[in-house]
């Protein structure tokens, strides 16, 4: 039985189990505008640093503080007037700082959201232009690529604790469109990117050097890198394929694990992560955290894979409210945050 609490945070607690997922909470944003993203962020609320949920609608971004019993209270809302919000860009180990990307189809602006000492909500413009890819990194850093082929630029920005100032460094451009960035776990000075021409590129963040450009084959064009691990001289990279073609009998791998030798630029496919039989859909949105990968599919279903086990461990079918449209892992625990366009965000423990 579901129990629905009063607004602002409607709470559902029941014993519904879907594979390894258990619904523990539901946040309902009363705003009428379309929901676009969710994430978690460290925030100091009433003198105490805690993990909060942050939700984005078209023209608002809201911070939710955790109460007892998986209930949530909205504490801050930043408003935007001209350009709609496209995505939240968390800076993983930062406190009281988060970035958002604004734009229509493509990112036009990146803004930093924070609070002043007197608790006033602030936002500052970090970058504007034709932004192709962006990622928040550890140590209050953000990397973004912008411009067209001829004036292509990759910038690394480091924010101060208060968010008032930033240092900017330029990384060497691979001279082609970057689709996504990924941190390399275990190597804090390394950064990875995937490009439109099916290359994987590696930078040294300390020196800004472009270390290698590696072709990974044309079988999966426009792959998105999600995370990478460095081990025993090899790079293990998790990719997704938004443009993968479905093969009716077996579907298409939603994620793929490949191994690359950065010295030789040779790579080998290790494992595809496909949907269970009877399910189809292409990757729309998703995130990888540690050994868990989650994706929203074109079918409106969310699927979860354990990258070590190699198979799908949970499926979240569209519910009576509609299809899923975005999914994230919480930063601090094994919770899955699943969102719908109507403003509902469901929290599942995994």
């Amino acid at each position: 039985q579901a129990k629905v609490a009063e607004d602002p945070a409607e709470i559902w607690c029941d014993s519904l189990k879907l594979g390894n997922l258990q619904l523990v909470s539901k946040l309902k944003n009363p705003s009428d505008s379309c929901s676009v993203d969710v994430s978690t962020v460290w925030w100091e609320v009433t003198g105490c640093k805690e993990s909060c949920i942050i939700t984005a609608c078209e023209f608002t971004v809201s911070l939710w503080k955790s109460l007892d019993n998986w209930q949530w209270r909205k504490v801050y809302t930043w408003h935007f007037t001209e350009i709609p919000v496209l995505q939240i860009i968390p800076l993983w180990d930062a406190c009281n700082l988060v970035c958002v990307a604004l734009g229509h189809l493509e990112i036009r602006e990146i803004r930093l959201l924070f609070c002043s000492d007197d608790e006033c909500l602030k936002q500052s413009l970090v970058k504007s232009g034709n932004i192709k890819a962006v990622l928040g990194l550890r140590h209050k850093r953000l990397v973004c690529s912008n411009g067209t082929l001829h004036d292509h630029q990759v910038d690394l920005m480091t924010f101060s604790r208060s968010g008032r100032s930033k240092e900017k460094q330029t990384l060497m451009s691979p001279e082609e469109t970057i689709l996504a960035f990924a941190e390399v776990q275990g190597m804090q000075d390394a950064l990875l990117g995937t490009t439109l021409m099916s290359n994987i590129v590696i930078w040294n963040l300390k020196t800004g050097q472009l270390l290698k450009k590696m072709q990974i084959g044309n079988s999966y064009q426009a792959s998105i890198c999600h995370t990478a691990y460095s081990d025993m001289g090899l790079l293990f990279v998790v990719l997704s394929h938004p443009h993968g073609k479905e093969i009716e009998s077996m579907g298409s791998p939603v994620f793929r694990l490949i191994v690359i030798n950065p010295k030789t630029a040779l790579s080998v496919d290790i494992r595809p992560y496909s949907l269970p039989q009877g399910h189809t859909g292409r990757f729309l949105d998703g995130e990888v955290k540690d050994n868990l990968a989650a994706a929203v599919l074109t079918s409106g279903t969310i699927a979860v894979w354990d990258l070590f086990l190699g198979h799908c461990t949970a499926l979240l079918l569209p519910n009576s409210d509609g299809n899923w449209s975005f999914v994230k892992w919480s930063g601090t625990d094994s919770c899955l945050l699943a969102g719908q366009k109507n403003g509902s965000v469901f929290v599942y423990s995994y």
Partner: peptide, 23 residues
């Protein structure tokens, strides 16, 4: 995978590529 698939592996690949790459 083996060295026959991926070529010779170096544990210090990051430092080596940094010293080889243009500044």
């Amino acid at each position: 995978c083996s060295e026959s698939d991926l070529g010779p592996i170096s544990l210090n690949w990051f430092e080596e590529l940094t010293s080889e790459a243009p500044p």
